[in-house]
Amino acid sequence: MDGDPAVEPDLDSFSLTLPLPYRVALVVDVPSLLHYPARPSPRTDTPHHLSTYRLATLLSIPLTISFLLFWALSHRNPTLVIYYDFLPFSYLCFLLLIFLLPLRRFSSAGRTRFLTTLRRVSIGGIALPHDGKFGDILLADVLTSYAKIIAELFVALCMFFTPNGSATKRPDRGCGGQYLVPIIIAIPSLIRFRQCITEYLRYFSAFPVIILSALQRNLSVNHDKVGLSETAVYRFWVLAVFVNSFYSFYWDVAKDWDLTLFTAQRAHSGLRQRRYFPFKEMYYVAIGADLLLRCTWSLKLSPHLDHFADFESGIFLMEILEVGRRWMWIFFRVETEWVRNTSSAGLGAPGQDDVLLGDYGSGKEDDD
């Protein structure tokens, strides 16, 4: 599919090097989703960031070993790539066990708290402000960026457990039914929509994009039954994705980051009076990057790049860019929350051991 005639038509060269399960494992940055409670003794206990790096190292080392072993055994041979599909799944099983097993030395408190928070937000729940409401909001927002990765994980599992199937074959995004993958992609937006009805437009506007994308990508859909031609579906898709992207960009800048760029006065050069980051340019770069990454869909409007997102490598790059955008967004969102809280409390700058996501509980926690 990526234009390499030397490989089988059912397995493109990118998938020979980086099969779907490995893409899922590579993009899922689990430590960034963990929310830690305050340290009982900030001066003597391990800092939060070191605990996160420790868990990241634990997850990265076996992933690297699995990668190297897979490449050494498969030699990018299509038959061997399909045969050794159990290797990436072994790592995914390891990842699951790390989360579920009660291993105190590997961020036990953080993993437990993450799973507890995930259970709560998965049904649209949200904690009280003093119990970690901001952390719940962050997690739900992060899940919206991971929606496609979650769907890719389902596709890999579906292919792995399909009779005569293999998770390292060319991804079959119709596995399980024509609309099942779009429904899975919509679930994180539905969770966030349920969490905060007052922000309904931002998250509700994602649903038309998902539905129309499903209509576009599934060639077996009979558009006549819904009274729409392929051209009409495409035009509605452009309109829906335009509204979703630019409204989400507006919300990022004006609501999540509290910047004045879209106000009539544009006070403080379009930023705000209180800022934690030292350079104005950081905010402008973030605004520009957020706009560009919100509009990656515009590649489909180019006659030269319109099929870029149809390649497996293109799909993977789009997922990486969205996760990177969310990673950047979190820094400025947490900074905004700190400014809001300290502005009302009259506090000074945060120290290196301050917890910006709130104190999630009381009692003694372990060192990780």
Rank of each mutant, 00 (worst) to 15 (best):
P5W: 00
A6W: 00
A6S: 11
V7T: 14
D10S: 13
L11A: 02
D12Y: 00
F14M: 03
S15E: 06
L16G: 04
P21W: 11
A25S: 12
V28I: 15
V28L: 15
P31K: 05
A38W: 03
R43S: 15
T46P: 01
P47Y: 07
H49I: 15
H49D: 11
T52E: 11
Y53L: 14
A56R: 12
P62Y: 00
L63Y: 04
S66R: 03
S66L: 02
L73S: 02
S74Q: 09
R76V: 11
N77V: 08
N77R: 08
T79A: 12
V81T: 13
Y83L: 08
F89S: 07
S90K: 04
L92C: 04
F94S: 08
L96Y: 09
L101Y: 00
L101D: 00
R105P: 00
S107I: 05
S122H: 14
G125S: 11
I126T: 10
K133I: 07
K133H: 11
K133R: 15
G135Q: 10
D136Y: 15
D136A: 15
D141W: 02
D141N: 10
T144Y: 03
S145T: 13
A151V: 04
F154Y: 13
V155E: 03
M159D: 03
F160H: 14
F160I: 04
P171W: 13
D172K: 06
G174Y: 08
I183S: 08
P188M: 05
R192H: 06
F193M: 13
Q195G: 14
Q195E: 11
C196E: 15
T198Q: 13
L201C: 09
L201N: 05
R202V: 07
I211V: 15
I211S: 09
I211P: 07
L212M: 11
N218P: 03
L219H: 08
V221D: 09
D224G: 04
V226G: 02
G227Q: 04
E230R: 06
Y234L: 14
W237L: 15
V238L: 14
N244S: 12
F249L: 08
Y250R: 08
W251A: 07
W251P: 04
V253F: 03
W257S: 10
D258V: 00
T260E: 10
T260Y: 09
Q265H: 07
H268L: 08
G270R: 05
R272F: 07
R274P: 01
F279P: 01
E281P: 01
L291A: 10
L293D: 01
L293K: 02
L293Y: 03
T296C: 12
K300P: 01
D306I: 02
F311S: 15
G314I: 09
F316W: 14
E319Y: 08
E322A: 13
R326W: 11
W327P: 00
W329M: 06
V334M: 13
E335V: 05
T336L: 06
T336F: 06
S344M: 10
G348D: 13
G351K: 08
Q352F: 08
Q352H: 08
D359F: 07
Y360H: 15
S362F: 15
S362N: 13
S362P: 03
D368S: 06
